[in-house]
Design a protein around this nucleic acid. Structure first.
Length: 108
DNA sequence: CTATTGACGACAT
DNA sequence: CATGTCGCCAATA
């Protein structure tokens, strides 16, 4: 199960904090997120932090994809992530590659 | 303390 | 375009 906020590290909280800022209908990448928290090289660590998402409802971690345009992972499975994004108007092709990255990308 | 892991990314082949 | 390799970083065992 996911961790409770109180049990999380400062780094993880920071990641989630920024993730919450991503507006509906938009997406960002693990890389932009890492840069936003002033840790441009902690890209992988950012992904790990999102995987421990304590509140799926309040934290739109599904809006974070890979910088090469691919879907990336998701706790509940990539298929789920893909469906949610579809509802927000963001589509992917048969290879889980986003259709129009530039159009939906959100940089902090 | 060291080793391993992983929702990543840049580059080489 | 499809793999493979390597570097990075924070958390965990």
């Amino acid at each position: 199960m996911s961790k409770q906020i109180s049990e999380m590290t400062d780094f993880e909280k920071l990641v989630l904090e920024y993730t919450k800022k991503i507006p509906k209908g938009k997406i960002t990448t693990y890389q932009f997120l890492a840069k936003a928290i002033k840790r441009p090289k902690s890209v992988r660590a950012v992904g790990n932090a999102l995987n421990k998402n304590p509140m799926m409802i309040k934290i739109p971690c599904h809006r974070v994809i890979r910088s090469d345009g691919f879907l990336g992972g998701f706790g509940k499975g990539p298929a789920m992530k893909r469906e949610i994004l579809k509802k927000e108007g963001i589509l992917f092709d048969a290879n889980n590659k986003i259709i129009d990255l530039k159009k939906f990308i959100y940089k902090f």
